[in-house]
Computed example of a mutant assay.
Amino acid sequence: MTTETLGRALPHGWTTVDYEVALEIASHESIIRQAYKDSEGVWTWSVGLTSATGHNVTRYIGKPQPLEHCLAVYAWALDKYAQDVLAAFEGFALSKAQFTAALSFHWNTGAIKRASWVKLWKAGSIAAARKAFMDWNKPASIIGRREKERDLFFDGKWCNDGTMTEYTRLTAKSTPVWASAKRISVKKELAAAVAPAFNPIPVAEPEPVPPPPDIEPSPVPVSQPATSGGLFAALKGFLEARFGRKA
């Protein structure tokens, strides 16, 4: 499976959340398979999803889900966020790298519509836009991610290795146990989660209707037109063969 089979480049720019886009953004994120409380006490699940996405994540309290399901809902939510990105850059064609970087930025900050770097870039002030991209640098732990997003948008430099961080345990207060972190590969599960949107299941062709039983094929040769005279002669021969008498 390749990214070419999962996504498509449109003449006016890249607009599709495909496997490669989702994988790049996931590499900056962590995943928890059951609902947990974030730093502000909000119930969160999977790749940082809250019920504000339109998917009720409280259903996963105490109920860890398969990795593929977690990633399928993540990809669905990414597509919703992508609409904001496309609206913010309306009238401008984005490369796949630019679309991915902007979507990653928006997924993390929710600020694509008010970020000054977007306005500067659209105005053609590329150097100023590149610098303004790094204004979104708090908390300090986010700086590494922001640099990677910047380099992807302005230089086309991809950085994912197909893995992301998973936290496998929660505290009694439903917050993540940070020591439970491990790096996992999500290539297979994310490809399976994203692929159905780009490879819909084809509608099965109807089964051919079998002929009625115990009906012998017509003795009319294939090359002979099935005229009324030909059919009468065929029926006559059939009756003679079956009953030993002439019709």
Rank of each mutant, 00 (worst) to 15 (best):
K80M: 06
E4F: 08
V17E: 02
R245P: 03
S39N: 13
S185Y: 11
G229I: 13
K63Y: 05
H55Q: 05
W178S: 08
G144F: 04
P196C: 13
W76S: 02
V73Y: 00
S185V: 10
Y167P: 01
D214Y: 13
R169H: 10
D151L: 13
G230F: 04
A172Y: 00
V222Q: 09
A192Q: 15
Y74E: 03
I184W: 14
R146N: 05
E24M: 12
P210T: 11
A226W: 14
K119F: 06
W121C: 02
G230Q: 12
R114S: 15
D155K: 14
L120T: 09
V17Q: 02
H28N: 10
M164L: 12
I142S: 09
N56F: 09
T165S: 05
W178I: 09
E24S: 08
V177Y: 04
P66I: 09
P212Q: 13
K80V: 04
W136I: 04
S141V: 08
G156A: 07
D18G: 07
K182Q: 15
G7I: 02
E24Y: 12
D151N: 15
F105G: 00
F154H: 04
T165L: 08
N137A: 14
S141A: 13
I143S: 08
W136V: 04
D151S: 15
G110W: 07
P219V: 07
K187Y: 06
K187N: 10
L67H: 03
A193F: 06
E240R: 14
A226S: 12
S125G: 04
T53C: 10
I201T: 11
A129K: 02
G91A: 11
E90T: 14
A115L: 07
E216T: 12
Y36M: 01
V85R: 00
F89I: 03
V85G: 00
A77M: 04
T3S: 09
P176N: 03
E207S: 15
R130A: 09
E40V: 11
V73Q: 02
P208N: 11
L86G: 02
P11E: 08
S228I: 15
Y60I: 01
P202N: 04
L49Q: 03
R59S: 14
W121S: 02
P221M: 06
V42Q: 11
Q34V: 02
E189S: 10
P196L: 13
G162I: 08
G144N: 13
K80H: 05
